[in-house]
């Protein structure tokens, strides 16, 4: 039954290839548009400081055993004490990112710009594909696949009898949307790739990017750390080294 389906070469010439080309061109265009719109945002002093505090706390955690116990203890209190420790955030004062966003119009416009460069072209192309190319098979992949891939490859065709290795046009659009990243990194350079999937992740996580959380985590791990000065061991090791040298 699957062998019965013969795809018109016109489909290749007028759907498959143009769709891919359009997707690439849109990707490139979007890259340049977002580059134009990107605003250089000066980092906020508080955010910079929080990042540095986290790095320093991590260093302290990692190398705690290299400094004397007294020094470690004073640093630990400096970081974690309940009054004005660097890592201590008074309860209820943790900044709410949502509220922050509304209070800072810059942040909102930044979001808008990001969304503009991402969502608008995507909805437009999706509407375009949907309008012109929906509801037919556009390509066939040269290997068989299980039924589970049906929803991925045959979006827009509701026929359970068609073999899964046929790809509907709308699914071809999605495959292009997510699969062209490698090509973009070739065209636009390594880090410039317009990485949709990553950006979506950022969108999801970006709202809740909560610095107080990472500070709190560092505080907790500093609280439970046990100090065990390793320097006394070094005396014996140094002795061994010198003995070797004397031989």
């Amino acid at each position: 039954m699957a062998e019965d389906l013969v795809l018109d070469t016109a489909i290749r010439d007028w759907v498959l290839v143009p769709l891919s080309i359009v997707m690439v061109l849109i990707g490139v265009l979007r890259y340049f548009v977002s580059k134009l719109m990107r605003s250089h945002k000066a980092p906020d002093q508080k955010i910079v400081k929080e990042g540095q505090v986290v790095i320093r706390a991590r260093n302290l955690k990692a190398a705690a055993n290299f400094i004397p116990a007294k020094s470690f203890k004073s640093r630990k209190t400096y970081f974690t004490n309940e009054e004005n420790g660097l890592l201590h955030i008074p309860p209820g004062q943790a900044p709410n990112p949502q509220a922050q966003m509304f209070s800072d119009p810059n942040m909102a416009t930044d979001m808008m710009k990001k969304n503009l460069s991402m969502i608008i072209p995507q909805t437009l192309t999706f509407a375009w594909v949907n309008f012109f190319f929906s509801g037919f098979v556009a390509a066939k992949i040269p290997f068989p696949l299980t039924q589970r891939f049906r929803s991925m490859l045959q979006n827009g065709i509701d026929l359970s009898t068609v073999d899964v290795s046929y790809v509907s046009s709308r699914s071809w659009y999605f495959l292009n949307l997510f699969g062209l990243r490698g090509l973009f990194s070739l065209i636009l350079g390594e880090e410039n790739a317009t990485d949709d999937t990553q950006r979506m992740m950022q969108m999801g996580g970006g709202f809740g990017m909560d610095s107080s959380k990472s500070l709190g985590a560092e505080k907790d791990s500093l609280d439970i750390i046990q100090h065990d000065w390793v320097l006394p061991k070094f005396e014996q090791r140094a002795e061994a080294v010198l003995r070797k040298l004397m031989k």
Binding site: L231, P232, F234, E235, A238, E239, V241, L242
Partner: peptide
Amino acid sequence: KKYYASTID
């Protein structure tokens, strides 16, 4: 002295 030792090591 301990830190000198660690330097040696």
